[in-house]
């Protein structure tokens, strides 16, 4: 069963083709990597998938339903959540509030019961707090729930961003360099966490990452993007030995030397 299909996706900025003719397919439950050298267009692909940019050409469909033309919040409500390469938390709010905001779309009370403080408000808030606490527990952030997000160490901010994305209860999770700035031990823990979360929440995950140990370690399939085009796809082992990939990463001469 296919969850996400991307067909002939292109995006141009002025004369620059940031993404051109990208085709991708993600099956339900897959953990797929998207790699490529700096400036290859990986984050642009994420921005297209989440509606931050509108595609110049091509189609994006989640469960056969097109997402092109929808606003980012509508796409999020359809079931795609993401994290950002340069962390975008609600930095002056508490860890708890960060997660609760993502639950907003699943709220159980209306504005009138909030203003009049009807019983439904207290029930709804309690439910939200409980769900948020469960998530923070998973990401080992429970003890910091009253801290302001910007005061967390970098690794914890990254984890909080993933927790917040999951609060939206997505089917597809897009992770943009989740391990950036983490030390090897934190990266290993993060890998464990991603695996566990995928199983526990029945998620499909697409992740951008430069840390090859992470990508090769957990991804079942990998797409390689270079100059806005998919130059290779396959299992980690296939990708490792693909001459085109080596060329993209290391330059032409080296790839000849290797092969």
């Amino acid at each position: 069963m296919i969850l996400l299909s991307v067909n002939h996706l292109s995006k141009t900025f002025g004369g620059l083709k940031a993404v051109s003719d990208v085709n991708m397919e993600l099956k339900i439950g897959e953990l797929v990597g998207l790699i490529g050298p700096n400036g290859a267009g990986k984050t642009t692909v994420f921005n297209l998938l989440t509606g931050v940019y509108t595609p110049t050409e091509g189609d994006i469909a989640l469960r056969r339903e097109t997402l092109v033309g929808l606003k980012p919040w509508q796409i999020n409500q359809k079931g795609i959540a993401r994290t950002f390469q340069n962390i975008r938390l609600f930095s002056n709010l508490t860890v708890m509030d960060n997660v609760k905001i993502a639950y907003h779309q699943h709220r159980s009370y209306g504005m009138l019961s909030a203003i009049l403080r009807l019983p439904g408000f207290y029930r709804g808030e309690e439910e939200m707090v409980k769900k948020a606490e469960d998530l923070l527990e998973i990401f080992k952030l429970s003890h910091k729930k009253h801290e302001v997000a910007k005061n967390l160490p970098y690794g914890e901010q990254r984890r909080l961003e993933i927790a917040r994305a999951l609060a939206a209860q997505p089917q597809l999770l897009l992770l943009d360099e989740p391990a950036a700035g983490m030390n090897p031990q934190e990266t290993a823990e993060l890998m464990e966490m991603i695996r566990w979360v995928r199983k526990h929440f029945n998620l499909t995950i697409l992740l951008i990452e430069h840390d090859m140990s992470l990508v090769m370690g957990i991804c079942e399939r990998i797409y390689v993007l270079d100059y806005g085009q998919i130059i290779a796809q396959g299992t980690p082992n296939e990708i490792k030995s693909n001459p085109k990939v080596i060329e993209a990463y290391l330059g032409e001469d080296v790839s000849h030397a290797v092969s």
């Binding site: 950002f84 975008r88 609600f90 779309q105 939206a168």
Partner: peptide, 14 residues
């Protein structure tokens, strides 16, 4: 408040 804090993040969080 989330709009004040980070409009893009708010929008991608539904």
């Amino acid at each position: 408040i989330s709009i004040r804090e980070n409009e893009i993040a708010a929008e991608t969080m539904g």
